Amino acid sequence: HNLTITQGKLFFHYNPKLCLSEIHKMEEVSGTKGRQERNDIALKTNGDQASCENELLKFSYIRTSFDKILLRWEPYWPPDFRDLLGFMLFYKEAPYQNVTEFDGQDACGSNSWTVVDIDPPLRSNDPKSQNHPGWLMRGLKPWTQYAIFVKTLVTFSDERRTYGAKSDIIYVQTDATNPSVPLDPISVSNSSSQIILKWKPPSDPNGNITHYLVFWERQAEDSELFELDYCLKGLKLPSRTWSPPFESEDSQKHNQSEYEDSAGECCSCPKTDSQILKELEESSFRKTFEDYLHNVVFVPRKTSSGTGAEDPRPSRKRRSLGDVGNVTVAVPTVAAFPNTSSTSVPTSPEEHRPFEKVVNKESLVISGLRHFTGYRIELQACNQDTPEERCSVAAYVSARTMPEAKADDIVGPVTHEIFENNVVHLMWQEPKEPNGLIVLYEVSYRRYGDEELHLCVSRKHFALERGCRLRGLSPGNYSVRIRATSLAGNGSWTEPTYFYVTDYLDVPSNIA
């Protein structure tokens, strides 16, 4: 807008934040220059609390790290170098490059900038070799853009010569660093050979998330399962459950009422301010606690030095998902009996873990797994792929695949051998790939016309006998059925096997 004052003059007093240069501009645009008398524009009460600059400061050096910015700028000295009290560095987070010096300023003089007072450097006698002032900004957020400017702080001049310097606002972004852990990993099994893994992005990506790394490792069953005799009275049979499938998407929606109208769909109840505040506090606490764990609990591995020492970490090797089922080394339970199943799973520490690289999504279907087997899954978020990966501390989750139908069934015939004193040795093959492992066998036998009897055969007993022995049988026709019990439950009964026990007292003698 054009402003013209045809008559009258300007009068400025007691404006401590208004620089004289701005008042002189007002004289020019209003056409009143030359009308004012000496005392109409006070030299001592206008701009006496402001830094009124008329020179431009330029930054000469900028260096960044993930949490620091090192700045240096060209030296500046007023005509009387004693008038320079120091520099004021202003900075704040700036997602967009549209910041002005006066953003967030209120009537009390406060604003949204963080201000650092910096002492002037030592003055050199040689004007050509003056030290460049600077400042190291610490405690910054990774991968965050900051708006920065600097200006001088000078003393009051009796001659009211307006001098000083100020830089333009520059924008500097800190470097990326390792992201925080992925949030809320959930693993479920939808079949006997697959596990579905879902997660949420890290709360602090500290860069642009480029991919996720998912490692999985087959877990050995508890050692007590191999040692305890679950045929003993009072000892509860062990059981394991597989990871249940995901709930429906509708039930997972946030901010939804727990109660549904019987007449149909209901609208979600909005969260109160107290609920939102509580969630923010919980989120802040979780982030602080995660940072504490990362800094205190997890110790970084030592990389190899120039002395030739090897990095103890196993090298990563990509495998196809079809090879995942046989990740671990199978060892027989008892070496003397080769027909026992290889369900003991000690994992070799030198073995390469299978892994998958996930790009542009937060889910993965891990296939080719062994049925009813526990897996430990390790999830890392990465925001750099080359020249070397920059990934987060791992988040861990466990899951067990679903049982395989008929995996616990005894394959092959049940054979028998009759000894003296009416002892019958029953023999059968253990299931080759049971659900988890076989903890015991149930032997059901009966003599024709009598009630059915049951015998429990422990895992250890089966390994020693290759089956079991029935003792003290009365003469007669017998039928026997056997079924295995694994961590997933009972298998199917075998087809009945028949044998006849004679009275050993009636056996004919070869003595003449």
Rank of each mutant, 00 (worst) to 15 (best):
D204L: 12
T210Q: 06
L213R: 06
L213M: 14
V214E: 00
W216R: 10
W216I: 09
E217T: 13
R218F: 03
S223W: 12
S223H: 11
E224Q: 13
F226P: 08
F226C: 09
E227A: 08
Y230H: 03
C231Y: 04
K233S: 11
R240P: 15
S243L: 10
S243T: 08
P244N: 14
P245W: 13
S248P: 10
D250P: 09
Q252A: 10
Q256K: 12
S257H: 04
A263F: 04
G264H: 04
E265L: 10
T272I: 07
D273T: 04
Q275D: 08
I276H: 13
L280V: 13
R286V: 11
R286N: 04
K287P: 10
L293V: 07
V297G: 11
P300D: 15
K302T: 12
T303I: 06
G308H: 06
P312V: 15
R313D: 02
R313K: 15
G322M: 15
G322P: 12
V327H: 10
V327G: 09
V327P: 10
V327N: 08
V334C: 05
V334M: 13
A336K: 11
F337M: 14
F337H: 07
S341T: 11
S341R: 07
S342M: 06
T343I: 07
P346S: 11
V359R: 08
V359Y: 11
S363W: 09
V365Q: 12
V365K: 02
S367T: 07
G368S: 08
Y375D: 00
L379Y: 05
Q380V: 06
Q384T: 09
E388L: 09
A395T: 05
Y396F: 14
M402C: 15
M402I: 13
E404A: 03
K406G: 13
D408K: 00
D408E: 01
D408V: 01
G412R: 12
H416Q: 09
H416D: 01
N422G: 06
M427G: 13
W428Y: 01
Q429G: 15
L437I: 04
L437H: 04
I438H: 02
L440F: 09
Y441P: 00
Y445C: 05
Y448H: 11
G449F: 13
H454Q: 08
R459H: 15
K460D: 04
H461S: 10
H461T: 10
H461C: 10
H461Q: 10
A463R: 10
L464H: 14
R466C: 15
G467V: 04
G467L: 03
C468T: 01
C468S: 03
G472P: 08
L473M: 08
S474K: 09
G476P: 00
N477T: 02
N477C: 09
Y478G: 00
I482F: 02
T485S: 12
G489S: 07
N490M: 05
S492P: 06
E495R: 07
T497M: 11
F499K: 00
F499Q: 01
V507Q: 14
